[in-house]
């Protein structure tokens, strides 16, 4: 343990202590209007600071979500700067991930010829934080223009060899795999340099589980909705093997149906840890069960870790899940969903 990082570790734990509890979620879900939910968050949760200058009585759902997202990122930045941890590359993990997300969103909307939709969905706080000129990215009209925008960023080398088809369509899935692979490689390399001993193992273990879960979910979706075969899956999966060995992954990919896939998954360490796993379960329920596994792992790491990198990485994941819970509830309120429906979407351990 680096004694100089103790304050960050303690701070991360205390921030987690202020998280929304089950009661907060049920209170939130019982609100009839988005403005009431915003008012609840302002008055009763640690988001009160972020919402202090916002008029919650008229707030739009999208703006509320944007404020919460910004608060999430600001919290991360504040923690990194607290003990100048941001000088170490690993601690830029959230910035890199958000940049990749923005880039992927821009490519997706560019394919659909809907730049106006991209500018709408762009996280505004990223305009000033990102190394990519996001306004120029939003205005890019083809893949060449995108490459020009990212010319001086590490993402240029990742995407430079991608070729759009004759009608200008960008192979999005390929870009997604390339960028995600780049991110995970970057994460693993910097984790190796940043942490040592048990902490390094804990951090790499979390990244491995994260990778496994992405692959498990993507493969399941492709099996269920496109009945994808093993060859296709191998092509589009992230080339990392965490707790699931290459053989086990291949065996999963070779299953003939999504039901068989789930049956086989139930014999793996992930399947055994899932609270619910049945062949007829809904896709989003399946994903939630997997998120719970990572949530529990991150929670444990935050509680027991003596390393700032592990603490911060875990905290940011736990807060991301919390943010998703809140967003789901806000959307539920907006679309008049029942309280029980919204409660089912909450991931909490």
């Amino acid at each position: 343990m680096k004694s100089s990082e103790n304050a960050t570790i303690a701070k991360a734990r205390s921030i987690y202590g202020k998280r929304l509890k089950y009661n907060d979620y049920t209170e939130l879900a019982s609100r009839k209007k988005v403005t009431d939910a915003a008012e609840y968050l302002k008055k009763n949760t640690y988001f009160s600071d972020a919402l202090s200058n916002i008029d919650t009585s008229t707030i739009h759902r999208g703006f509320l979500e944007s404020v919460l997202n910004k608060a999430y990122y600001d919290g991360y930045e504040k923690l990194c700067k607290f003990q100048h941890l941001d000088r170490q590359p690993f601690f830029n993990f959230l910035l890199v991930r958000q940049e990749i997300r923005e880039l992927l969103k821009a490519l997706l909307y560019l394919n659909n010829d809907s730049n106006d939709v991209y500018i709408e969905s762009m996280h505004t706080y990223m305009i000033e934080k990102s190394g990519i000129d996001l306004m120029a990215l939003a205005k890019a009209e083809d893949f060449k223009a995108v490459l020009k925008v990212i010319r001086h960023t590490p993402y240029y080398d990742v995407l430079k060899n991608v070729k759009p088809d004759s009608s200008g369509n960008i192979p999005y899935t390929k870009c997604e795999v390339l960028l995600r692979t780049y991110y995970l490689k970057w994460l693993l390399e910097n984790a190796e340099k940043c942490a040592h001993g048990k902490s390094k193992k804990a951090l790499i273990d979390q990244i491995n589980v994260q990778t496994d879960i992405i692959n498990i979910i993507n493969a399941y979706r492709m099996k269920k909705y496109f009945n994808a075969d093993a060859e296709t899956l191998e092509k589009y999966m992230l080339p990392f093997y965490g707790r699931l060995s290459k053989e086990k992954q291949s065996a999963l990919f070779q299953t003939q149906s999504s039901e068989e896939y789930l049956r086989m998954l139930s014999h793996t360490s992930y399947g055994r840890k899932m609270e619910q796993l049945s062949e007829d379960m809904e896709s989003d329920q399946f994903e939630r069960e997997l998120v719970k596994i990572r949530y529990a792992m991150a929670k444990r790491a935050l509680m027991f870790s003596e390393d700032a990198a592990v603490s911060l990485y875990s905290l940011m994941y736990l807060q991301e899940v919390e943010l998703n819970n809140i967003t789901n509830i806000i959307e539920g309120i907006r679309y008049n969903k029942s309280v029980s429906y919204m409660e089912n979407l909450i991931v909490l351990q």
Binding site: F63, S66, K70, I119, M122, T124, Y125, I127, E128, M135, A138, K139
Partner: peptide, 11 residues
């Protein structure tokens, strides 16, 4: 207009 949104106006 939220101040953050003003950043998008140049688009």
């Amino acid at each position: 207009l939220p101040r953050e949104s003003a950043l998008k106006l140049s688009y």
